[in-house]
Simulated assay, not measured.
Amino acid sequence: MAAPFQFKEFTVQQDRCAMKIGTDGVLLGAWASINHHPFSVLDIGAGTGVIALMLAQRSSAELIDAVEIEPNAYEQCVENFEQSPWNDRLFCYHASLAEFAEEIDDTYDCIISNPPFYEDTFTSPEEDRNTARFTESLPFKELLQAVSKLLSPQGNFSAIIPYKNEEEFCQLATAENLYLNKVTHVQGNKKAPVKRSLLAFSKQKSSLEQTNLVIEKDRHIYTEDYKKLVQDFYVKM
């Protein structure tokens, strides 16, 4: 059974969730654009709820919603929200993104998503894990169409995806009138290829802010940039 993950200000239970706490989610939660003190936040494909919890810690947003389709992950997310210091601001919906987007009339100032992205033909025998991690369960086009509908005019949308999908993702975003404002390319170490892209979009065109982030100098020896990014969350670095 997966042990709870202890952050500085909250704990995440993950024993019933197919996808456990990983570097991608923590990176996104720490990096995501939350300019202009958002009133409302939406986490699409919440899993354990860790990213929404990180945004609750980072912001004064009064409304932090999450949507999760997989039943076990949904129940776990609700439990983690209820046990957190911000339980009065956090709410999780059990629905597909398409259902949620159709029913919700309001817009959000900040939307975040760590979407499923393994596009390979191989699928795991664990159905929950497949739902959590294979692109077919939430195609990028469907995600971006929903974001375009749900994002407020001045809002930000942040996501983490494989670097190899960045160009395709950005083209699909532009087709939905979402413009790339900020990108950070993530490497495990200086010699490793770029594996992940942290992307921030809005409905406003602006000059592109580009940075690189290297996680480790050596095995379990973290760079100052990475430590600075996650220092408010990890108990030990």
Rank of each mutant, 00 (worst) to 15 (best):
P38M: 04
F100E: 03
A18V: 10
V41E: 02
F134D: 08
I69Y: 02
F5N: 07
Q83S: 13
I51M: 08
K20C: 02
S40T: 05
H94N: 13
Q57W: 02
L97R: 06
F117M: 07
D65E: 12
L28H: 05
N130R: 14
L55W: 02
T11D: 10
G49K: 00
E79D: 15
Y93R: 06
R89F: 09
R16H: 15
G47N: 02
F10P: 10
E9A: 15
T131Y: 03
D43Q: 02
F81H: 01
D43K: 01
F91K: 12
Q76V: 03
K8G: 13
D24I: 08
T11Y: 14
W31Q: 09
E99T: 10
L27P: 00
R133N: 02
Q57T: 07
Q76N: 14
E62A: 15
E142V: 10
L63V: 15
T23F: 04
L28S: 06
L27T: 01
L144P: 00
P71R: 12
S96D: 09
A46R: 00
L144C: 03
F7C: 11
I34K: 09
S84R: 09
D24A: 14
S96L: 09
F91D: 13
I51H: 06
I104Y: 08
N72Q: 13
Q6A: 13
D24P: 05
R129K: 12
D88I: 13
A18M: 09
E70Y: 02
S96K: 09
R58C: 08
L97M: 10
F134P: 00
E82P: 06
